[in-house]
Amino acid sequence: MTAERDETAPSPFTLLGDPDAVACDGDSCEIPAATVRAPGDETGEPVTST
C-alpha cells in the first residue's frame, strides 16, 4: 500500500493504551512535562528534544 492517507480519517486500528505516551514525531521527541523543565521555568509546559 503506498497511497496517501487522509489524516482526518479514523485510524484503521483500534488504538490501545495511553494516547499521550511518549513518542518521537518529526524531529522532536516529547519529554514528559511533569519531569522536565528548563532551568527557572516553573510552568511545566511540555518541552521537546532530540
Binding site: M1, T2, A3, E4, R5, E7, A9, S11, P12, F13, T14, L15, L16, G17, D18, P19, D20, A21, V22, A23, C24, D25, G26
Partner: peptide, 27 residues
C-alpha cells in the same frame, strides 16, 4: 509509505495482527 497510509506520524508505533495499534513507548 505504509506508515503514511496508516496515519502513523510518530514512533515507535506497534501494529498487532493488523487490527490493534499502540503508539509510543507505553508501559
Amino acid at each position: 509509505a505504509q506508515a503514511r497510509a496508516y496515519g502513523i506520524s510518530g514512533v515507535p508505533f506497534f501494529v498487532i495482527d493488523e487490527k490493534f495499534g499502540v503508539s509510543g513507548a507505553q508501559e
